Simulated scan of single mutants.
Amino acid sequence: MAYLVLAYPEIKKMDFDVIQNYRKEKDQLFYDVIDPHFTIVFPVFDQTETDFIAEIKKQVATCNSFDFVLRCATINKDAFNEYYHTFLVPDQGYSNIVKIHDKLYSGTLKENHRLDLDFIPHIGIGNSLNKLDCKKMVDEWNKDDFEIIGTVKTLTIVEYNNDNVRKVEEIKL
């Protein structure tokens, strides 16, 4: 069992449906597990639920909601398995996500911060064991201009256990 912090974006229903329809076809790992999101804190295994919630609330007390715009898809190799992933990465809002991510790892979660891995704010939309499949996904998205505008107003603490995600608490920014 692990605890994470996610930001579920507030976007137009039409954009949500486009992402979900694409994920239904291309996201074999996570489509059935979780809705589109930005991961702010990755799985933490060494905290109690109470301590984790308290730490997150303490760190985000001064954080504000923010807008973002997605205009680009990228490919990323998973550091923990053989999969490649296709991400929608924000142009606008990128730094807001990075700063909240870093702030949440500045206190008692400091030892959980993976400094050996680049943190790339993203919404995952596809994955494959074949990197060329992900490259094709990226090219499909990037061949035409697109713009998905949204807002992050809350952070959601979730418990992840055996491919099940349970919402623990939602924190307004």
Rank of each mutant, 00 (worst) to 15 (best):
F45R: 13
S106E: 10
Q20D: 09
I123A: 03
A79L: 11
D67A: 14
G126D: 08
L115H: 08
A79R: 11
K153L: 07
G107E: 04
M137L: 09
I120P: 00
D163V: 01
V168M: 09
E140H: 11
L132Y: 15
T108L: 10
K110M: 10
L117N: 03
Y31W: 09
I123L: 13
D139S: 14
L88S: 04
I157F: 09
Q92N: 09
L88T: 02
I100F: 07
Q59R: 14
D46Q: 08
S65Y: 06
L155Q: 06
I19A: 04
Q28S: 14
L4I: 06
K131R: 14
L129F: 12
E49M: 11
M1Q: 09
F30H: 13
W141P: 09
C63E: 15
D78N: 15
I40M: 05
I148N: 04
A2V: 02
T48K: 09
D118I: 12
Y31F: 15
Y160E: 11
V89H: 00
K57V: 05
E49Y: 05
E147Y: 01
F66V: 06
T156K: 05
T74P: 00
F38R: 02
H113G: 00
I19P: 03
A79Q: 12
V138H: 03
K24Y: 09
K136C: 01
C134Y: 02
F38I: 01
Q47V: 04
Q20G: 00
D118P: 10
I97Q: 00
M1R: 06
K77I: 06
I125L: 03
V89F: 00
K110F: 12
V44Q: 05
D144Y: 12
K13P: 01
A2K: 10
H122S: 02
A73S: 12
E55K: 03
P43G: 09
G150L: 06
Y160T: 11
E111Q: 10
I125Y: 06
Q59P: 08
V60E: 01
D15V: 05
D78W: 07
H37R: 08
I56P: 10
N21D: 11
G107T: 07
H85W: 14
Q28H: 14
K167S: 12
Y3F: 15
G93D: 04
D46I: 07
Y8K: 07
L6K: 06
V138S: 04
G150E: 08
L29P: 00
S106I: 06
I97W: 01
D15W: 01
K153P: 01
E170S: 13
K77L: 08
V69T: 15
T108G: 12
I40V: 15
Q28M: 11
E169L: 13
K143E: 15
H113M: 07
T86Q: 07
I56A: 08
K103W: 00
R71C: 10
I11A: 02
L155E: 05
F87N: 13
G107L: 03
Q59C: 10
I75S: 15
Y105E: 05
G93V: 04
I75F: 05
D133P: 06
T156I: 06
T48Q: 09
I75P: 04
K167L: 14
K13Q: 11
L115Q: 11
T154Q: 13
Q47F: 15
E169D: 10
I56F: 07
V41L: 05
D102H: 09
K172L: 11
K172T: 14
